[in-house]
Amino acid sequence: MTVYILAEHRRGELMDVTFESISAARRLNDEVVAILLGTDLADHAEKVAKYADKVLVVEDERIENNTEAYTQVIGEIIKKDKPKVFLMGNTSMGMDIAPALAIDLDSPIATDVVGISEEGGRIKVNRSVYNGKVLSDLVLREAETSVIAIRSGEFSAADLEEKNGEITKVDSPLKETIENKKFLEFVEPVAGAVDITQADVLISVGRGIKDKDNLPMAEELADAVGGVVSCSRPVVDYDWLPKDRQVGTSGKTVKPKFYLAFGISGAFQHVAGMKGATMIVAINKDIKAPIFSVAQYGIVDDLLKVMPALTEKIKELKS
């Protein structure tokens, strides 16, 4: 059975979720075909081909950065090739494309999938629901093609088998330029204007940071991961950071994907403001600090040592 995946890329960069999608697809079958759309695709195609059995490349500038064009082109390819599954990341792009595609193809769809298997010719998925408190197994209804969107970070791409698949150019099946939905531009988050409620990664510091002079260390880590520095109330009280960085009942409620708490004990008023984070990591020298009971991961050590080391490691991994 064949699984088609979407190779997601943006502004010249291929997204990790592409390889995670290949990894997820491998759990189902023997053939993985990647679809790569847009312009300037040669480099990407090579990278993807390394792990895919085949890469279909459609070079068409009308598709670049246009999710509607993406949807239509993927739809045409799928209708023609009829793979058993089309799989992509449950990214912002996936949320725009996948459900629309499902309707176009008259396909069942499962999104935010964390586990996938085949059972008697039908696709079975595992999803985490109710704030991650419950897992559910669902079976997709019988169909020519099923659409799956996987959660990022769940299917490790670390041990992908090399395939060095063939790269095939396909004529753009896009009938006409999309007029109803025109891509205009990308907008970077406004530099300087820090909104801790909108950040995906928060580097949060508490009284344990000890001194205002240690704050640049936190800023450096935040820059390295592309996050923002937030804090507990004492840090604001000492005037080390402005009020709008305070997390908690009398500050801001935040729900980042990653919350790294450095030298924060985890007082009730603080925890109330951050418990909704997807992943909480606590770095605290006191193993008894209540923060460890809300965190999923912890390091029991001196933050002044861990923080710069972490910054270095992240920089290494990025380069």
Binding site: T249, S250, G251, K252, T253, A272
Partner: peptide, 20 residues
């Protein structure tokens, strides 16, 4: 203020202002 809003909403839904 947002924090006041959240506290009041919580009294309405949870019968306490702490969002618990």
């Amino acid at each position: 203020p947002v924090t006041v809003r959240d506290a009041l909403e919580s009294v309405g839904t949870n019968n306490n202002p702490w969002g618990r």
